[in-house]
Amino acid sequence: MRINCPFCGERGNDEFSYLGDASVVRPDPASPSAADEFYAFAYERRNVAGPMQELWYHTAGCHAWLVVTRDTRTHEIFEVKAAQDVAFGRQKTADTTP
């Protein structure tokens, strides 16, 4: 599989490390239900068959974290974005910072 790093260009997946679902967001630690929310954040995952947003790290390249939209059935990659940009976009819509 090859991933098109928005900074470095297309590279083989041997240059990247996989973390997991990018749709889960670190909860607000001040929330009254923080214990449950963090539990879900750490452990609860959907097992998506189809397009999924995932976090990948360009270990052997520019050290950027990426949000990769990949079809888990075919490994087709539809979109790759810098995680930092996605995180900023998310913060604009809802302030989730601690």
């Binding site: 590279r11 240059e15 052997a60 390249g61």
Partner: peptide
């Protein structure tokens, strides 16, 4: 410029 690896070396 490229940042990459060769033969397991960054």
């Amino acid at each position: 410029v490229a940042i990459t690896h060769v033969s397991h070396l960054g």
